[in-house]
Simulated scan of single mutants.
Amino acid sequence: MHDRIRGGDPEAFRCLFEEFSGLVHRHAVRVTGDRALAEDVVSLTFLEAWRLRERLRDEGESARPWVMGIAVNVLRNTTRAARRHRAAMARLPAKDTLPDFASEVVGRMADAERLAAARTALDKLRRSEREVVTLCVWSGLSYEEASQALGVPVGTVRSRLSRARDRLRRLTEEELCKDAAGSSRPRAVRAVTPGPGDTTKGWKR
């Protein structure tokens, strides 16, 4: 199969896409929190895989580490572009807030607040730490597969993941504490005028 992919066999490449496009999409959704952007990442990943098909090696039986390594590089570029876009949008006059796709992504999770805090905390990790967390924890790659995907030794993956888990746990707890403190603040008082038959006296602090 690898020989056929390297040789440019369209049917073999279609099989590669069918096998791994779902994995790339789920990984991209978790990293970006944006389903539309994740679809772009899938397209760019497999366009790049086709361009680089002759570099596919026969290390192991699966092409998963190779595909995910390309996806990681695509995500590095797209997230940089997304940050520049957000910074540009932040300089524009404020408009009505659009719904966040992240809520759709985490909707089926039992503890959405903790996951949201973990996503915020994840953004505070170093890029190298984020990548091993998303590959090994979220996308289920083994240490060896993550090593191939990132082009670093297995020992480096292990040490980065251990360090990242400790930092992620601490930063997540800090985010949860911030959220708890924010929700305990009193809301602004707004007076209302009762209408006919309305027993409401107003909103109290």
Rank of each mutant, 00 (worst) to 15 (best):
D3W: 12
R4I: 01
I5R: 09
I5A: 03
D9T: 02
P10E: 07
P10A: 07
P10T: 13
E11S: 14
A12T: 01
R14Q: 14
R14F: 09
L16K: 01
F17Y: 09
E18F: 09
E19G: 12
L23C: 12
V24Y: 00
H25Q: 10
H25N: 10
H27M: 14
V29H: 00
T32M: 01
G33T: 06
G33L: 08
D34V: 04
R35W: 04
L37P: 00
E39I: 04
D40I: 08
V41M: 01
V41F: 02
V42F: 01
V42T: 09
S43H: 14
L44W: 04
F46Q: 00
F46H: 00
E48W: 08
A49Y: 05
L52I: 05
R53E: 03
R53K: 13
R53G: 03
L56W: 02
L56D: 03
R57Y: 01
I70R: 01
A71G: 10
V72T: 07
V72R: 00
N73P: 05
L75A: 04
L75H: 03
N77Q: 12
T79A: 04
T79N: 02
R80F: 09
R80K: 13
R80L: 12
R80C: 05
A82G: 02
A82I: 03
A82V: 02
R83L: 14
R83A: 14
R84D: 12
R84E: 13
H85A: 14
A88S: 12
R91W: 07
R91S: 11
A94S: 13
K95V: 14
T97L: 11
P99D: 07
S103M: 07
V105G: 01
V106G: 00
M109W: 13
A110H: 04
E113H: 04
A116L: 11
A121H: 12
A121R: 11
L122N: 00
D123N: 11
D123L: 13
K124Q: 15
L125G: 03
L125W: 02
S128F: 04
E129T: 08
E129Y: 10
E131M: 01
T134K: 02
L141Y: 01
S142K: 04
Y143Q: 08
E144C: 06
E145P: 02
A146L: 01
Q148L: 14
A149E: 00
G151L: 07
G155I: 01
G155W: 05
R160A: 07
S162D: 09
A164M: 01
D166R: 15
D166N: 10
R167N: 12
R169Q: 08
R170H: 12
T172E: 01
E174H: 08
E175G: 07
E175Y: 03
L176W: 06
L176D: 05
L176Y: 09
C177F: 09
D179A: 15
A180S: 11
S183A: 15
S184F: 11
R185G: 08
R185L: 15
P186L: 15
R187Q: 14
A188I: 06
R190H: 10
A191H: 10
A191C: 08
V192F: 11
T193V: 13
P194K: 06
P194L: 06
G195Y: 06
P196K: 12
D198S: 11
T199L: 12
T200E: 10
G202Y: 08
W203I: 03
R205W: 05
